[in-house]
């Protein structure tokens, strides 16, 4: 299977080339954020305050890593369920966010916002925390340190394996692939 190498930040032009079903390896800087960090960013936007960083063309990875063992920079770091971030996602996409990495399906509202903002959604293998940890080369907390595992981290990844599951046109691998394997005798 052909694997596409991509480098962050991921500009609109590059995002539009990615199609649902593409297997990619991501290298460069990405940012971690999950439930509590999203809630805080949403509150900041509501109050007209700036976000902790400029998300234009950046990628957010939905993860709350384990603590690092001595000699390591981070613990196991696999994806969490993206759907819980759905309520906050469109406002971040409107701020220029280019992509998200997580697991599981997204709401129609998120998909519509992705289409209008030319954003892309990647999934990686849930639970593969040890394997994905190996792709992380540096870690720096940049905001909300008090949230512990839920703080926003700037991480550098190398050859981080993921699959494009929803592309900039809204093609959705969760829908298209399943249809190929439904056994109609049972349904």
């Amino acid at each position: 299977m052909a694997v596409i190498e991509i480098r962050t930040p991921l500009r609109k032009k590059e995002r539009k080339k990615l199609k649902a079903g593409d297997h990619v390896r991501i290298s460069g800087i990405i940012y971690t954020a999950r439930d509590a960090a999203h809630q805080r960013m949403s509150l900041a936007l509501e109050k007209g305050l700036p976000l902790p960083m400029d998300f234009t063309d950046e990628i957010i990875y939905y993860v709350g890593p384990c603590p690092a063992k001595p000699g390591e920079i981070i613990g196991s770091a696999g994806p969490t369920t993206s759907g819980r971030m759905d309520v906050y996602t469109p406002e971040l996409l409107d701020q220029g966010l280019g992509g998200m990495i997580g697991k599981g399906n997204r709401s129609e509202r998120v998909i519509n916002s992705m289409i209008s903002n030319d954003a892309v959604y990647f999934a990686c293998v849930g639970g593969a925390g040890a394997l994905l940890q190996d792709c992380i080369k540096s870690v720096e907390i940049i905001a909300y340190e008090d949230l512990g595992t839920e703080a926003i981290r700037k991480i550098e990844v190398e050859d981080f394996p993921a699959i494009v599951v929803i592309d900039t046109q809204g093609n959705n691998l969760y829908e298209t692939e399943r249809k190929k394997f439904i056994n109609k005798l049972w349904i």
Binding site: M1, H23, V63, G64, P65, C66, K69, E72, G75, S76, A77, G78, T80, V125, G126, G127, A128, G129, A130, L131, Q133, D134, P161, I163, L173, E177, K180, F181
Partner: peptide
């Protein structure tokens, strides 16, 4: 039978080996 499915299962099996060898959690959600 699915190509994606096979690759995902391989990744899962590979992850178990890394977790065992490094004695770190299989998944970050412990």
């Amino acid at each position: 039978e699915s190509v994606n499915g096979k690759e995902i299962l391989d990744t899962m099996l590979c992850n178990f080996e890394i977790a065992k060898t490094k004695n770190i959690p299989i998944c970050q959600d412990t």
